[in-house]
């Protein structure tokens, strides 16, 4: 794919990501929406000052940011036994047992108009961020997952709960393995599909295609769709057919 210098590429990524988000939101009606999250300006920068503009142009660029889709509900395909383990850390238990006393007996129970329900702790909630990696010059998928009450899923739990085909993909494919890295914008450790094999893989995908639109936003947008069609598989996320068709046509 045609890419110019790094800075241009970041801009291109921004454009492609916006196109991707628009298309996804248009075609994928049963899915939370993708949005572009610009990096917040650091508080020490005055956005309109001349100094800021000349010294830190990148901070003001809309291209600094990431594509985000959050709170994607994935119902794991594990047995119910596995599902009740979450959050039951040893320490947690210890703490709970200390507090599990008569103190907490409550007379709420006798309210006849409150629905008593089984909690749906089984659902897993994923946040996905697509961040441009300037070193590898490829998009990188960052993700994290939690149970419905906010308890974080560990990598082991993630791998266990993914569809069987994903587990296979993860062990067999050399370029979709999960690792842990600091999120470049949030500075907290997130899981990520390591980018080191992406470029090679994408070359394979586009091997037979004539080089279209050198450096153009359209070409990069196609790139992003193709890329996501592969990484999305890991989580059972399918790119809407219409988007793939539109890639095929242009």
């Amino acid at each position: 794919m045609g890419f110019g210098s790094k800075c241009e590429k970041r801009d291109e990524f921004h454009i492609a990501a916006s196109t991707f988000a628009d298309q996804w939101n248009k075609f994928n009606s049963s899915f939370p929406q993708f949005t572009w999250v610009p990096r917040p300006n650091p508080p020490w920068l005055h956005p309109t000052s001349q100094v800021t503009r000349s010294l830190f142009p990148s901070f003001l660029s809309q291209a600094e940011g990431y594509l985000s889709v959050e709170n994607v509900v994935i119902l794991p395909c594990t047995t119910s036994e596995d599902c009740c383990n979450e959050g039951d850390d040893e320490e947690g238990k210890e703490m709970l047992s200390c507090s599990d006393k008569d103190v907490f007996i409550d007379d709420d129970d006798d309210d006849s108009t409150t629905l008593v329900q089984n909690h749906d702790y089984a659902s897993h909630h994923y946040d996905f961020h697509v961040v441009y990696n300037a070193s590898y010059q490829v998009p990188v998928l960052y993700f994290r997952a939690c149970y419905s009450d906010g308890q974080v899923l560990l990598l082991y739990d993630v791998e266990k709960s993914l569809p069987g085909s994903s587990a296979k993909l993860l062990t067999e494919s050399k370029w979709t393995f999960i690792t842990q890295d600091d999120h470049p914008y949030l500075n907290r450790p997130w899981y990520t599909l390591h980018p080191c094999g992406t470029s090679e893989r994408m070359k394979m995908l586009f091997n037979n295609e004539p080089v279209v639109g050198q450096g153009g936003g359209v070409a990069v947008a196609e790139y992003l769709v193709s890329w996501f069609s592969v990484v999305g598989q890991v989580f059972g996320l399918q790119v809407p057919f219409e988007m793939l068709v539109s890639v095929g046509q242009s």
């Binding site: 009740c84 959050g87 850390d89 320490e91 947690g92 238990k93 703490m95 709970l96 507090s99 599990d100 907490f104 007996i105 409550d106 709420d108 129970d109 309210d111 409150t114 008593v116 909690h119 702790y121 009450d149 906010g150 308890q151 974080v152 560990l154 990598l155 842990q180 450790p189």
Partner: peptide, 30 residues
Amino acid sequence: VGWEHNKGGAKPNVISLAKAMDPTSLAISA
């Protein structure tokens, strides 16, 4: 009325983020 019923009834919820927040655990997994 309104105290939330957590796992196991009218009890407080306990969440452990050691593996996600404790630098030692993070260093190990990294």
